[in-house]
Write a protein that binds this DNA or RNA. Structure first.
Lengths: 353, 353
DNA sequence: TCCGCCACAGAGAGCGCTCTCTTTAGTTAT
DNA sequence: ATAACTAAAGAGAGCGCTCTCTGTGGCGGA
């Protein structure tokens, strides 16, 4: 009776070691180890015995001990610099992490989250990452000129970036097609008869900001008009900045009949200003955003927006890193994922022209 | 010349060990170790020598080796079950993680992110967490009845939950005052003259859903009216469900002049339906949401909403876990953080009465 | 002068595992 | 029957660190 009760309780106290598993299975520690490292040189009989012993004892290998001898940590660092969660809109962070996590989990790798919030943190980060605490690093590149990725790479630490870095180094990265997304957005505006198309850009010291502006210019130029800088107004991805930029554009160009915003949040700010200025959307002014975040469907009218495959970006980043880990190579691969335009009411055919 | 060049290059190759640091410093490994473990029994002279040697060699302690002997991992697991990122609105995930990360970073603890995406993952999770891969566990409790937290606790693994669990166990948790938040929202509606106040609830198998409904009922009852179930309609926190619920409420109670929604996203859906039904907001119907997410300021009219201190919740969770770790105790502490109402246009004084 | 005490430093075991090397047992060729 | 080979299992070192135990040298008190 007593014995049974004890046996029914979850294993408490010190975790069982491989040694104990081996003893219960009646084999040597080495053989037991081979079972857990997927070494083929084990007889079916021994394998079964070890597996049963492990299950009985609820054995889980001690990762620290394994790491100490193999040098592998089976964990991946994800570096997200502080401003990211503030600047990027709503589905960004969870979507990215979800995609990454999905791929890593399948390989039994752990995701270690690193969010340096100060310069001191960032300094420590390099030491931490190059000290072999992780097998590889994923980074969301905000400021394209961050020297950290290249330095890690030079120390032999595999790195994959999310978002195009501004330099032209040997870095591997995954990006969404910001240029193409912006271009199709503006082409859509041209195709629906808009003549005076302005843009509210993101910060121009960031790859995303630059690229989305580039796409806008490409489309404008291709449409026959020559790009006019006065139709471009910079924002910081925030709602307030979108409002301010919109007002500036209206003051400068009362005739504008469309605006492409580099983020949905800025577009929401722009909509507010247009309303105050008694411009009807989309009849007088068409608006297109970027990100296709949840706010796109909650504005009035609902916001046309460029959707980016954020989760797929996470998956692809993880896949690239795993490929690097497996092959040992570290060539600078680039993957650019397609974006797509989701048309909603805010860019419906206008009634002004 | 050559020498200097070599010295200027970053330390490549195998990471330096404590042994090497000790040799350079001219002390024993034990003494060097004492320096890094903040052991006071080291002479200033020896300490300085070790510190200089460590800096010169760019020494970073090997975490695996340290873990192996101390049993501590200096890392904390954060468990976020799959549906969380989908169900919860926009600032939830980043804000929470940011708060947690802030506190852990100060203590040089790593955050290991665990997002079980399948039942198989969840099964593995218990083994992983109880195998001593982390020193403590933070969990976002979705389904209040998840048995995992209690089982981990029983195995001696400190656990702190985010969100009230439905059971009455010895679990330590941090929650925001959902009841109070909902109550002040509805009290605000009553105070501004609303007579027929409906609610769109969250899923009623979740603590948040239940609590926000409770707060609504408390306020209604306190306002003299007796709660009438037909004014309550359940949603799933999603926009579409908010729209459906709103329509159902309007069909049932054309006279309603206010609706309290358990999430901003549902409120956005409700606004859409009210517009289609030619109900002016706030003149005919006042709307209040919950979460104070970014969409609250992008709807028309801007949404009054209950703000919850998500980042503080993260910080508090981390602090409670650290306290448990430090003291060794594991008593079921509860912390409830205050919520506050942010009044915007959607609940302005109406014009119907 | 000698003993005892204190502050510090060194020696060495051992954490749990992997992996190389060696041994053993089983099989086939001669 | 013996040699030659192969597959499977065991022995044992050692990964880098912490921590206990054991010196060691300097100093004050008897």
């Amino acid at each position: 009776m007593y014995k049974e009760t004890v046996r029914a309780l979850p294993q408490i106290g010190p975790a069982p070691t491989l040694e104990e598993v081996a003893k219960v299975a009646g084999v040597s520690r080495a053989t037991a180890s081979r079972v857990f490292t997927a070494n083929p040189k084990v007889s079916p009989r021994a394998r079964r015995a070890v597996e049963r012993a492990a299950e009985k004892l609820m054995y889980v290998p001690n990762r620290a001990a394994r790491t100490l001898v193999t040098g592998r940590t089976d964990s991946i660092g994800l570096v997200i610099p502080e401003p990211t969660s503030l600047l990027f809109g709503d589905p960004f962070f969870p979507g990215l992490v979800r995609g990454i996590s999905e791929v890593l989990t399948r390989r039994q790798l752990q995701l270690v989250l690193l969010m340096p919030q100060s310069t001191a943190d960032e300094t420590r980060l390099e030491g931490y990452l190059s000290a072999g605490h992780v097998d590889g690093v994923l980074m969301v590149s905000l400021h394209g000129n961050d020297p950290l990725p290249e330095r890690l790479l030079r120390r032999g630490m595999p790195v994959v970036l999310g978002g195009r870095p501004s330099g032209n180094g040997p870095l591997t990265y995954v990006d969404v097609d910001n240029v193409g997304g912006a271009r199709i957005a503006v082409e859509h505006l041209i195709a629906t008869g808009r003549k005076h198309i302005a843009t509210i850009t993101g910060p121009l010291d960031m790859g995303v900001g630059i690229d989305r502006l580039q796409g806008y210019r490409d489309a404008i130029r291709q449409g026959g008009n020559h790009a006019d800088g006065s139709y471009e107004q910079a924002g910081d991805f925030g709602q307030e900045s979108g409002a301010v930029a919109m007002q500036a554009l209206l003051d400068r160009h009362p005739e504008l009949d469309a605006v492409f915003c580099a983020s949905d949040v800025m577009a929401a700010g722009a909509l507010e200003i247009l309303r105050r200025n008694r411009r009807r959307v989309p009849q007088d002014v068409a608006v297109v955003g970027f990100d296709d975040s949840t706010i796109a469907t909650s504005t009035v009218p609902a916001l046309s927006s460029v959707r980016q495959p954020i989760e797929e970006m996470g998956r692809e980043m993880a896949r690239l890193l795993l490929a690097t880990l497996d092959s040992g190579t570290s060539g600078g691969k680039r993957v650019v994922l397609a974006t797509e335009l989701v048309v909603r009411a805010s860019s419906g055919r206008g009634g002004r022209e």
